[in-house]
């Protein structure tokens, strides 16, 4: 039997993703004990499983986008609620290792329009990256930038390497280990959002550390 059917691979990825999902839920039920010998490997296992799920989700989504099926389903959501969700997710993964804080701009409206599940996937990917590379802290912001709702994830890592920064300003991120797929995925989601011809954008730059900015029109 020849496995040349892309749908079969997609189905396989789904199954793996679901099994990993169960694994994560199982890991979540193991209580922390306050002993680094116990807690640290547990935290690493949780983060690693989350990142593996995420990779599979990205691969599935890129497969869909390649077959022309990536259609954001836009609805009204409260940016602050999503920020709170991101914060809680980041905090639960960071535990005591990193300090997580969230900020919201006073211009951010009560409601904004986007595909929540897609945007969340892109941002959680950025948060996972920061959790892996940041030294001590992570900040998630929601603000208005150039007329768009902007979600920004900042960390105090060594910052993005040059080839990633080049990708962030429109270049190709292929070939870079690990990060290429995640960023390609985030850009795909940003660009799939459009409002009267204005498309979403992904901006990557370095300040104190790496800055990931996701703009929604």
């Amino acid at each position: 039997m020849k496995f040349d059917n892309l749908d079969l691979y997609a189905a396989l990825m789904h199954e793996l993703k679901n099994n990993l999902g169960l694994l994560i839920m199982t890991l979540d039920t193991i209580p922390v004990q306050g002993h680094p010998d116990h807690d640290q490997p547990l935290d690493e296992a949780r983060l690693l499983s989350q990142r593996s799920v995420e990779r599979l989700q990205q691969a599935l989504l890129i497969y869909k986008a390649d077959s022309g099926e990536l259609h954001p389903v836009v609805d009204a959501y409260a940016p602050v609620e999503m920020l709170r969700e991101l914060r809680d997710t980041a905090q639960s993964l960071a535990r005591d290792r990193l300090h997580v804080d969230t900020l919201v701009g006073d211009q951010v409206p009560t409601l904004w329009f986007f595909d929540r599940s897609l945007v969340e996937m892109a941002l959680i990917n950025a948060i996972h990256n920061s959790l892996a590379h940041s030294r001590s802290r992570l900040r998630i912001e929601a603000d208005m930038v150039d007329g768009c709702l902007a979600y920004t994830v900042r960390d105090d890592s060594a910052g993005y390497p040059d080839h990633i920064l080049a990708y962030g300003s429109g270049g190709s991120g292929h070939g870079s280990a690990g990060t290429g797929l995640g960023l390609r995925f985030a850009r795909l989601i940003a660009e799939a959002h459009d409002n009267n011809g204005r498309h979403g954008e992904l901006r990557l730059f370095n300040e104190e550390g790496a800055v990931f900015r996701f703009l929604l029109p």
Binding site: N18, I24, R84, S92
Partner: peptide
Amino acid sequence: MIKPFSAEVMRNRLET
């Protein structure tokens, strides 16, 4: 909610 999701996400959603 899309599987897998964390307990935190579920709690936030339920709250909302």
